[in-house]
Design a protein around this nucleic acid. Structure first.
Length: 413
RNA sequence: GUGAGUAUAGCUCAGAGGUAGAGCACCAGGUUGUGGCCCUGGUGGUCGUGGGUUCAAGUCCCACUACUCACCCCA
């Protein structure tokens, strides 16, 4: 048997309504905030991500689907959307055309070991806002998140942090590294390694021994520049005014290098080890770094699979409204074309071409159909159909020309 | 990349060395043209794959593969 690849999942009809439900809610909210949909290619030049996400990040180092195409060019299946949007923004000069806020609903790819809440192909619901450095944009981004989670009635917690910018963060990293070096012996093996590769990551370690060390480590909040500090304070003020429950967690470290100052994570405790439902922040330097003119920006992405796991949704498993059943050979053609006419009226219909009436009714019942149209010798003679309402278990004969309007009325009830 | 757990019917699972099972689902009949509930019957399995031990392996041993969870890391 040929199976799907590990970490790649089929989304089957039984769950598709749930996906559509989430996507529709998000689209409506994004658009009400003035965001426009953008679609970008699945495949990009590899360097787009090494230059934006950061060459030393795990995403680029070990998680990307990167390969040479037939033209010997190094290409990558997108691991995230922000870099793609920024590329499109620059390439098409979108910001000069008056477009500055975008959203996307798109699959992403990362070569990781699959586990609960983590797949190799997964779906991001993301938005990006360009051109405005003000904390009101950050607040807007948070508002969008809260709006989605409220509509889906999902219980989460919000953690925020200020991770500084390219001016002030290097200073903090230097201080942190010095502090950690002194306590190196108390850190776990991984963290001793991280000391050199990425000292900020030590803050994120969940091991008890390391947490003890990092608990009294210098906080980034004391080292950020005035600009970052003021921005972060303003965002906090707005969040409080918006009645968003948040905690400042100065241990949050995002796995992507492009973030500046405000970052956030929205976390659920009901998702196992991978609890981050949505995350994002400000990235004021990225557009310039990718060759555009300096443009501040802020955005986020939510994991669709993780959101879907969080809320209950009652499936409407009816996918057929009416089942047309000919009884006897003479009714076949007539029934077939009657089915066609129902379909032209957008009444979801199935034509039963074989089997007993009993089995046809069983099928109709299993499909949760509302109507069964039974057409046999008698009905043909009288130019009528026997219209059975499966929900009420009542049946009556209806003139063929009236069938559609009767069904219509019944479905609207 | 590392560790642990799991693998028997479409699904959920029992079976601990001696003929492959149950519930649900599916199909048919009980009603010459009537679903759900009920009753009766039926279809369906190279017991993940390959090797080994044994008179005999779904069961014991080894290897592999897949899935799941966790680490790393992330949405």
């Amino acid at each position: 048997m040929i199976q799907s690849l590990p970490g790649f999942k089929d989304i089957l009809p039984a769950e598709i309504r749930k996906w559509q439900f989430v996507e529709n809610i998000c689209r409506d909210i994004f658009e009400s905030f003035g965001y426009q949909e953008i679609r970008f290619p699945v495949l990009e030049k590899a360097q787009l991500f090494s230059r934006s996400v950061g060459n030393d990040t795990d995403i680029v180092q070990k998680e990307m689907y990167t390969f040479k195409d037939k033209g010997d060019q190094s290409v990558t299946l997108r691991p995230e959307g922000t870099a793609c949007v920024v590329r499109a923004l620059i390439q098409h000069n979108l910001i000069y055309k008056g477009m500055h806020k975008f959203y996307y609903v798109a699959p992403m790819f990362r070569y990781e070991r699959p586990q609960r809440g983590r797949l190799r192909e997964f779906h991001h619901l993301g938005v990006e806002a360009f051109g405005d450095p003000s904390p009101y944009v950050d607040a807007e981004i948070m508002e969008i998140n809260m709006e989605i989670l409220k509509k889906l009635n999902v219980d989460v917690r919000v953690e925020i942090n200020n991770i500084g910018c390219k001016k002030c963060r290097p200073l903090y990293i230097k201080v942190l590294k010095e502090y950690l070096m002194e306590k190196k012996g108390l850190l776990c093996e991984d963290c001793q390694r991280r000391l050199n590769t990425n000292p900020l990551r030590v803050l994120d370690c969940k091991k008890e021994s390391c947490r003890k060390v990092t608990a009294s480590a210098p906080s980034i909040l004391d080292y950020v520049c005035n600009e970052c500090k003021n921005h972060f304070n303003e965002v906090q003020r707005l969040l409080t005014k918006m009645k968003v429950d948040f905690v400042v967690n100065d241990k949050i470290v995002r796995g992507l290098d492009y973030y500046t100052s405000f970052v956030f994570e929205i976390i659920s405790d009901r998702l196992g080890a991978q609890g981050t439902v949505s995350a994002g922040g400000r990235y004021n330097d990225l557009v310039e770094e990718l060759g555009g003119s300096p443009t501040p920006a802020c955005g986020f992405a939510a994991g669709e699979e993780r959101i879907i796991e969080l809320f209950d949704y009652k499936e409407d498993d009816r996918f057929v409204d009416a089942v047309v059943v000919p009884v006897g050979k003479d009714a076949m053609d007539f029934s077939f074309f009657l089915t066609e006419n129902l379909r032209k009226e957008y009444i979801r219909s199935e034509f039963i071409s074989s089997g007993s009436l009993k089995s046809a009714l069983r099928k109709a019942n299993r499909w949760k159909a509302k109507w069964v149209l039974i057409i046999g010798e008698d009905e043909m003679k009288e130019d009528m159909v026997s219209l059975r309402d499966l929900e009420r278990s009542v049946q009556k004969k209806v003139k063929v020309k009236d069938v559609i309007s009767v069904i219509r009325r019944g479905l609207d009830e």
